[in-house]
Amino acid sequence: MEKRTDKNLYTLLFATGMVVVVGSLLAFVASSLKPKINENKRIEKQQNILYAMGVHENEGKGNVAFIEASKVAGEFSKYIKKQIVITGDLDIVENNDAYLIDIKKEQTKAKAGEKRQLPLFIGEKDGKTYYIAPIRGIGLWDAIWAYVAVDENMIVQGAYFDHKAETAGLGANIKQRFFMDDFIGEHLLDENGIFKGITVSKSNSDPTNKIKYDNEVDAIAGATITGDGVSAMIKTDLRLYQSYFENLKTN
């Protein structure tokens, strides 16, 4: 005898019912949590930007420590003096929400031949000016991105790297201090002022990164593709800011 649950009609009804129940459950969870998740993402962006310019709670050689979420809003307005958006031929507009610009969308725009908006955050700490640029690229599995703080000579003052889904223990280590801190002091330009970027190099004979003008940092073993992705996003995205800094000096 055929069981009730083997009938085709029952199967169809069950499948329909399941889709409705599970679908509405997930939709309910997602929409009720969305405002909170977006707020968390906004705070994280501010924490990352501040981290790149050296506003953090790192202790000694320990792990990355952002400033507390509750303090972020105040610190962000205290340290970040100006947010600008650069478009096309150095068309500069001030925009206090520039940090919310979606770099992924801007990159798609540029690919479609449209003008891309380049946000730049100008911070001041202890009398020094930091220019923090958001960049984005692809690692092994998914997106990688970074906030890089440079001075007016395009020498890196700090950086925060992050990733969506790089391999734990290998590529995921780009967000560890032993990798990120190596960038501090590295030059983006060569001695003739030509943009060279910073290459994540496997053949670097300078593992402790004492030489800062070689345009190279030491790679992570076992994370070749992620490292190449980091080099590539620095080369393509940070290069776009070079004309801004050249202009800054001549004026």
Partner: peptide, 25 residues
């Protein structure tokens, strides 16, 4: 009450739903 013909799909849906809820929370 699971129809045996589509039980694998049902199982997959249950895991996926649980995982998404945990992720969002």
């Amino acid at each position: 009450i699971i129809p045996s013909k589509i039980r694998i799909i049902v199982q997959l849906t249950v895991v996926a739903a649980l995982v998404i809820v945990v992720d969002q929370v």
